[in-house]
Measured scan of single mutants.
Amino acid sequence: MDETGKELVLALYDYQEKSPREVTMKKGDILTLLNSTNKDWWKVEVKITVNGKTYERQGAVPAAYVKKL
């Protein structure tokens, strides 16, 4: 869990989004888990830093590609 009490997951593999509802992640990324009720796809929040600014993006990733921490 992070400092706000939200559950975290670890990306076990790289994943490139294939639709606007998904998010890209790299192996080793730590993501915030938002919903894991679907056994195949979990909704997560990814933090992306671009030019020193951090953005948050929500989307789905394959459940088999992440592990709860």
Rank of each mutant, 00 (worst) to 15 (best):
M1P: 13
D2C: 15
E3T: 14
E3L: 13
T4S: 12
T4H: 13
G5N: 12
G5M: 12
G5T: 13
K6L: 12
K6Q: 11
K6E: 09
K6F: 12
K6H: 12
E7A: 11
E7C: 15
E7W: 12
V9C: 13
V9G: 11
V9W: 05
A11S: 04
A11L: 03
L12C: 12
L12K: 03
Y13F: 12
Y13P: 01
Y13N: 08
Y15K: 00
Y15R: 00
Q16E: 14
Q16R: 10
E17R: 14
E17M: 11
E17D: 04
K18C: 11
K18H: 07
S19P: 04
S19L: 06
P20Q: 09
P20L: 09
R21G: 15
R21T: 13
R21M: 13
E22V: 04
E22K: 04
V23A: 05
T24Q: 02
M25G: 00
K26S: 07
K26Q: 08
K26W: 07
K26M: 08
K27D: 01
G28C: 08
G28H: 04
G28S: 03
D29M: 13
L31C: 06
L31W: 03
T32M: 09
L33F: 03
L33G: 00
L34S: 02
L34D: 01
T37H: 10
T37N: 12
T37Y: 09
N38W: 05
N38P: 04
D40T: 13
D40N: 11
D40Y: 15
W41Q: 01
W41I: 02
W42V: 07
W42Q: 00
W42E: 00
K43C: 15
K43P: 02
K43D: 14
V44P: 00
V44Y: 02
E45M: 14
E45T: 10
E45P: 00
E45N: 07
V46S: 06
K47T: 14
K47M: 10
K47C: 13
K47I: 12
I48W: 13
I48P: 00
T49L: 11
T49I: 12
V50C: 12
V50K: 10
N51K: 08
N51C: 11
N51M: 09
G52T: 03
G52R: 02
G52Q: 05
K53I: 14
K53H: 11
K53R: 13
K53L: 13
K53P: 01
K53T: 11
T54Y: 07
T54C: 13
Y55P: 00
Y55D: 03
E56R: 15
E56L: 15
E56Q: 14
E56D: 11
R57E: 01
R57V: 08
Q58I: 13
G59Y: 05
A60S: 14
V61Y: 02
V61M: 03
V61A: 02
P62H: 04
P62T: 04
P62Y: 06
A63E: 02
A63P: 04
A63D: 03
A64N: 11
Y65G: 04
Y65A: 10
V66W: 04
V66N: 00
V66M: 06
K67G: 05
K67A: 10
K67V: 15
K67C: 15
K67D: 04
K67T: 12
K68R: 12
K68E: 05
L69E: 01
